[in-house]
Amino acid sequence: MDSLRQTAFMLQELGWLPAMFQYAFLTNALVATCMIGPLLGALGPLVVVKRLAFFSEAVGHAALTGVAIGILLGEPATEPLVSLFCFCTLFALLLHWIKSRTSIPYDALVGVFLSFSIALGAALILYVAKKVNVHLLENVLFGSILTVKDRDLLVLAAISAAALLLIIRGSNKALLASLLPELARTRGINLRLYDYLFILMIALVTVASVKVVGAILVGALLLIPATSARLISRTGREFFWLSVLFSTVSCLLGVLLPMAGAMPVPSGAAIVIIASGGFVLALIIRTWRSFA
């Protein structure tokens, strides 16, 4: 991490970055943004294709319960990483396991899990508030990128590396399994394996992104850039790269503009607002093409 900071300091001295990046916590925020933007953009197309937008939202909300459990078990109030990842991972895998063994509509099942996690989180917060400042939980809900530490960056880097490996090795098979499952079976693709791998990756990436975007908004960043890309893309390759572009630009502007005072809102809200602006732009381009 020190090498990344040294690079940022060098760019700041050369005038390529604003003077504010002489501070380490701002450099951490920029590094986190540069990892999260492409990562969420790369996973977004599969979220859209597999219609898992509501699922990612549920996992994000489950983070609040995971944080409350961690604090009750004695983890640091600012970094309850073990309980956070464990609860959200179990939440996602159990939800998908029940879905594969029942005929309950997926959106209804996700709604049940989402309601339970929110209710459990609300109940546990009453006990957590006695131990810590309850305002710390606002960082979980809405994100607090300026509090990102080296440990958070290392966790994010590890998850990014795992996701990148999965995307390189299996993105085409995962997409084929989502769009044409019968054809995928004839080619020997293990549909269940790819389903669980993708669900697990969505859960891990969602939890890792909570500190930057916030539990309430992280699902939106998985969905909006990919939906915008789908509106104007003509091929699967365009769909993927435009989603990465929209997500990365939204994250960078959503962090830099509030730092510069151009948007007096939290970084998580700024990121999603800018991503929504990208959706409107994509919609205009799509409408213009239809009349051209």
Results as ranks from 00 to 15, higher is better:
residue 181 P to M: 12
residue 174 A to H: 13
residue 239 F to D: 02
residue 282 A to C: 02
residue 266 P to A: 03
residue 273 I to W: 08
residue 250 S to A: 12
residue 281 L to K: 00
residue 223 L to R: 03
residue 208 A to Q: 03
residue 204 L to P: 05
residue 237 R to F: 00
residue 215 A to Q: 02
residue 232 I to M: 00
residue 272 V to I: 12
residue 171 S to C: 13
residue 179 L to A: 15
residue 222 L to A: 09
residue 237 R to K: 13
residue 220 A to F: 04
residue 194 Y to G: 11
residue 223 L to N: 06
residue 281 L to R: 01
residue 231 L to F: 01
residue 260 A to S: 07
residue 228 S to V: 00
residue 247 S to A: 14
residue 179 L to P: 09
residue 249 V to L: 06
residue 175 L to T: 14
residue 208 A to E: 06
residue 208 A to S: 13
residue 228 S to N: 03
residue 190 N to C: 09
residue 191 L to D: 13
residue 225 P to Q: 01
residue 282 A to K: 02
residue 242 L to F: 03
residue 192 R to L: 11
residue 263 M to Q: 08
residue 201 M to D: 12
residue 195 D to G: 15
residue 255 V to A: 05
residue 186 T to C: 15
residue 195 D to F: 09
residue 187 R to K: 13
residue 278 G to T: 06
residue 263 M to T: 07
residue 197 L to Q: 14
residue 272 V to D: 11
residue 204 L to W: 07
residue 204 L to A: 05
residue 243 S to H: 00
residue 184 A to S: 12
residue 232 I to N: 00
residue 224 I to V: 10
residue 171 S to A: 14
residue 241 W to Y: 08
residue 233 S to Q: 04
residue 194 Y to Q: 10
residue 223 L to G: 13
residue 174 A to S: 15
residue 172 N to T: 12
residue 264 P to I: 08
residue 169 R to S: 15
residue 173 K to H: 13
residue 254 G to L: 07
residue 280 V to N: 09
residue 260 A to G: 06
residue 216 I to W: 05
residue 199 I to G: 11
residue 188 G to E: 10
residue 256 L to S: 09
residue 274 I to Y: 04
residue 194 Y to M: 12
residue 266 P to V: 04
residue 247 S to Q: 07
residue 261 G to D: 03
residue 242 L to S: 03
residue 162 A to P: 14
residue 264 P to C: 08
residue 192 R to C: 10
residue 202 I to N: 12
residue 224 I to A: 08
residue 273 I to T: 13
residue 241 W to F: 02
residue 227 T to H: 01
residue 164 L to V: 14
residue 221 L to Y: 00
residue 281 L to G: 03
residue 196 Y to C: 09
residue 253 L to F: 02
residue 206 T to F: 02
residue 228 S to Q: 04
residue 265 V to Y: 10
residue 242 L to Y: 03
residue 240 F to N: 09
residue 263 M to H: 05
residue 268 G to Y: 03
residue 250 S to R: 06
residue 276 S to F: 05
residue 223 L to H: 04
residue 277 G to R: 02
residue 237 R to M: 03
residue 255 V to D: 08
